[in-house]
């Protein structure tokens, strides 16, 4: 359980400050699919990405995720946010964040407005209910994220399904 404790909680000893900092960081890889639908843009695809999370304490964390998706052309999905996780081996995570989609999409004119050239922006809420952590290794499956998207012309729904995510605590 040492890894779990390091990744989950603040270290109490000043001498362990550097190790403590590392112990708060988890990095990993994930496979996912995402879709954003507005009347001015359809952007989506499947692919993979990488993520990093920083634990403030046993429950609260912040994350940054980058993914590269293919389907409607190729595009990069950048996500940052934060959330709350349960303590223990079963560590469901509830989180929220903002999304930036850059690159390929199907673009449409709306009325007299030409297709947007702006990136896709979004806000999302997510839940990773099948998420577990053992010895500093985090495994999460079927994580769902839903929210709203815009390309500065129209507003519509967006969703991301992370099929499988694997993370490792740097303090292991």
């Amino acid at each position: 359980m040492k890894g779990l404790l390091l990744c989950a909680a603040l270290a109490s000893s000043p001498a362990a400050a550097e190790a403590s900092l590392r112990s708060r960081v988890t990095v990993g890889l994930e496979s996912l699919g995402a879709i954003s639908l507005t009347s001015a843009r359809t952007q989506g695809g499947i692919g993979g990405g990488a993520h990093a999370a920083f634990a403030f304490d046993a429950h609260w964390l912040a994350y940054a995720r980058a993914a590269w998706l293919f389907g409607l052309g190729s595009h990069t999905l950048l996500r940052v946010g934060g959330g709350w996780q349960r303590e223990g081996v079963w560590r469901p995570l509830l989180h929220g964040g903002v999304v930036l989609g850059l690159g390929g999409a199907l673009d449409f004119s709306v009325g007299d407005r030409p297709p947007s050239r702006a990136p896709t922006l979004g806000v999302v809420l997510g839940a990773a209910l099948l998420r577990f952590q053992v010895e500093g290794v985090t495994v999460s499956a079927l994580e769902l994220e839903a929210g709203l998207s815009t390309e500065l012309i129209a507003l519509g729904p967006r969703a991301t399904l992370t099929l499988l995510s694997l993370g490792v605590c740097l303090g292991l």
């Binding site: 389907g71 052309g73 595009h75 390929g104 449409f108 030409p114």
Partner: peptide
């Protein structure tokens, strides 16, 4: 107006 991504040759 409909803009296909890239060259337009994507599967979708």
């Amino acid at each position: 107006a409909i803009i296909a991504p890239g060259l337009g040759a994507g599967p979708l």
